[in-house]
């Protein structure tokens, strides 16, 4: 008998709460902008934050409330999502250039070597804590796949000891770029497939000794570039993709093949 009373009392209290909440949800209903939900349905829902808002809901809300007018901020969704969102809002679709992640390192097993054997936790950020990692080059890819683990699209893999991006699968969400402890990954326009695949800031001789395909900061690329889009700073060459016309002259001039076209 006591158990029946106990059950009845708790059930009654629970029911009371439930009815109260049900009534309240009707009484205190807040109208949300119907466009928010429509836009939200177009977005991929990965909540990656590449658009600069806190998740897809944030971006959808900003668009619906007309705080944000750029419909092409969703890089994972690329052109299709931008077009869908533009249709919902009734504005002209903005041309989207596809972007991809790029690993600024080509230190594969045959190009560089190990200075020690690492047997700790299999994570790049852990390995980096010990003398900057087990590779000869402390700037390069640690090859333990922190970037692989955060990729939602199976677009980045460790091949031959170095991370490589599958350009077709990559959506340029930028998670790998945030994760890499050596900050090797950047997001570049897919239409300009020329890149300095090295991040070594050591002097030329030291860099070359550690890796066959290191950037030695010889400035040859800087001299041949017709647009002044490539600059050497801290013994390392970097491309300004705003100016780059993807002619490939720098890649041809590079004596160590650090620039790939």
């Amino acid at each position: 008998m006591p158990i029946l009373i106990a059950t009845a009392v708790v059930t009654a209290i629970g029911l009371l709460c439930a009815v109260m909440l049900a009534v309240a949800s009707k009484a205190f209903e807040v109208k949300t902008n119907p466009k928010t939900e429509q836009i939200r349905a177009c977005l991929p829902g990965a909540n990656c934050g590449a658009c600069g808002y806190a998740g897809c809901d944030g971006y959808a809300n900003a668009l619906a409330e007309e705080i944000e007018t750029n419909t092409s901020l969703c890089t994972p969704g690329a052109a299709k999502v931008a077009a869908d969102v533009a249709e919902v809002l009734g504005v002209a679709a903005v041309e989207v250039t596809k972007k991809v992640a790029l690993v600024h390192c080509n230190g594969s097993c045959e190009n560089t070597g190990k200075k020690a054997e690492y047997k700790g936790p299999q994570s790049c950020s852990a390995a980096k804590l010990i003398f900057g990692g087990d590779g000869q080059c402390v700037y390069g890819c640690l090859g333990l796949g922190d970037c692989v683990s955060v990729c939602e699209y199976d677009a980045i893999h460790i091949v031959d000891g170095v991370a490589r991006v599958d350009i077709d699968a990559c959506t340029a969400c930028g998670r790998c770029a945030k994760k890499c402890p050596n900050a090797l990954i950047s997001i570049i326009p897919a239409t300009k497939p020329v890149a300095v695949k090295c991040s070594n800031k050591d002097k030329g001789a030291v860099a070359r000794k550690n890796c066959k395909v290191a950037c030695i900061g010889c400035m040859k690329c800087e001299k041949v570039c017709p647009n002044g889009a490539i600059k050497v700073e801290n013994n390392l060459s970097r491309i300004d993709y705003e100016k780059c016309i993807a002619c490939g002259a720098c890649a041809e001039a590079c004596p160590t093949n650090a620039i790939k076209f």
């Binding site: 006591p2 009373i5 106990a6 009392v9 708790v10 209290i13 629970g14 709460c17 439930a18 109260m20 909440l21 309240a24 949800s25 009484a27 205190f28 209903e29 807040v30």
Partner: peptide
Amino acid sequence: AFGLEYLQTIVFILVIAALVQLVEMFLKKV
């Protein structure tokens, strides 16, 4: 009154959760 003191924790959690939910709705509206 019913001699159910031992149900204190479970009933309190139930009631507090429902109450906070209610207050949240109320604040959102008002």
